[in-house]
Design a protein around this nucleic acid. Structure first.
Length: 395
DNA sequence: CCTCCACCGGAACTTACGGAGT
DNA sequence: ACTCCGTAAGTTCCGGTGGAGG
């Protein structure tokens, strides 16, 4: 039995493709960040003050996804921290994953070594504990809030406002905030007081161009892949594909890594353009698979309704989707949600890229959404069939 | 030019739940 | 034992709206 495992382990160890796959993973922060020298310098200039135990200005960082915002911030902070570990510390919170004020505060407290229940406390109580934890740290604390826009959109800027003012309530420590966002327009929605205090210094991260992406990939490929496995053309292709999507470096790295994995599975010894193209579709397919699989039950039902209804070539309307959805729930003997809710679910599915919904005015025939699937019907059904609650419909 | 359809979408409220504090 | 809290999902209520057809 264990010889099967032995075989698998051996296969991994004698990979013909990768020297060390870790260098290609998105969380990996390299020792050098090419083409971001200017940004490193700018962030460094602002944040150095922490090394002397002074509070740096609050900082605001804009840039599209995969332009190195997170990597540069972490890079600068951890390097500064190495120089003066006792003068300051920093907490990094990704606000997309922990997208409520409660969780954000909880995360920061945990970062400072405190313990806090998953739920149950009032936000006021949590705020008090946060203050205490910060105060007890007795140093400068830099708070990195990655993707703050997600928090503000859902819960307003109250937390941000309180955080920017928290220094007034602390005696032992000083806090400075680094806000990162990839939505440039969101700043306008902020309370002017928050805006002015958070935006003491601003830094823009422009997208990488194809040449820069190519250089980044090349440097990574050298350490991640075995010699001769990827050639320049393959790298150039990955760079070009990613450059087309607003110069997203993470995307470029993913493409190359997955292409490598595909080549490995196919038992090839080199990566070619074919694998890069396959990687592109595989990445998209995996993303969709996860998205659909983790959908709430009624969202799945709505999606199923759309799949069913889109059999006739002609975009569906909200009302039609709702009708089909109703008949499905009746067949299953379940309660159905309201049309209002279905309307929201449709918006959610649109955001996730599963469908395209556009509002149309049909004059006398009202205003509605026209709904179309944006991905293949079969692949949706494959995922939906994994949910056993839906099985009884096919009869 | 006005009407009125078939929804859109904001906002406040409800319910069930897991958990804390006292 | 009892009260209070935040979250997630959903409901109720309701004002808004672009343009085809009269």
């Amino acid at each position: 039995m264990s010889d099967i495992i032995d075989g698998i382990v051996a296969k991994v160890q004698e990979s013909t493709i990768f020297r060390s796959r870790d260098y290609m993973r998105p969380e990996y922060v390299p020792d050098e960040l090419p083409h971001r020298e200017e940004q490193i310098k700018a962030l460094g200039n602002v944040l150095v003050h922490a090394v002397k135990g002074e509070v740096p200005n609050n900082l605001f960082i804009y840039g599209l996804t995969g332009t190195g915002k997170t990597a540069v911030t972490k890079f600068v902070l951890s390097n500064l921290h190495k120089r003066a570990p006792d003068k300051f510390s920093f907490a990094y919170v990704n606000v997309r994953q922990t997208d409520t004020p409660y969780r954000v505060m909880a995360d920061v407290i945990e970062f400072l070594g405190g313990k806090v229940p998953f739920t149950g406390l009032s936000t006021a109580e949590l705020h008090r504990r946060l203050q205490r934890a910060l105060n007890d740290a007795r140093k400068v604390i830099i708070l990195v809030l990655d993707e703050v826009d997600a928090l503000i959109k859902r819960h307003g800027d109250e937390l941000l406002y309180r955080l920017t003012r928290i220094n007034g309530e602390l005696s032992g420590s000083k806090v400075s905030i680094v806000g990162i966002t990839n939505d440039v327009t969101f700043v306008d929605e902020l309370d002017p007081r928050v805006k002015s205090s958070l935006g003491e210094v601003e830094q823009v991260f422009p997208p990488y161009n194809a040449v820069e992406l190519e250089d980044i990939l090349k440097r990574r490929a050298i350490v991640a892949f075995k010699p001769g496995v990827v050639n320049e053309d393959v790298i150039r292709l990955c760079a070009a594909l990613a450059a087309r999507e607003h110069g997203d470096a993470r995307r470029a790295l993913d493409l190359l890594r997955v292409a490598g994995e595909i080549a490995e599975r196919q038992g090839k010894s080199i990566v070619t353009a074919d694998q890069v193209y396959e990687a592109r579709t595989e990445i998209e397919r995996d993303r969709m698979h996860d998205v659909i699989k983790t959908l709430p039950f009624h969202s799945k039902l709505v999606l199923l309704s759309i799949v069913d209804g889109s059999r006739r070539e002609r975009p569906l309307t909200t009302g039609e989707v709702f009708e089909i959805y109703r008949s499905l729930t009746r067949k299953l003997g379940l309660e159905s949600v309201t049309q209002r809710r279905v309307s929201d679910i449709l918006n959610e599915l649109d955001m996730l890229g599963v469908i395209t919904a556009s509002v149309v005015n049909r004059g006398r025939y009202g205003k509605t959404k026209e709904i179309k699937l944006s991905i293949d019907r079969r692949s949706i059904m494959e995922v939906l069939n994994e949910d056993e609650r839906l099985v009884s419909i096919w009869s």
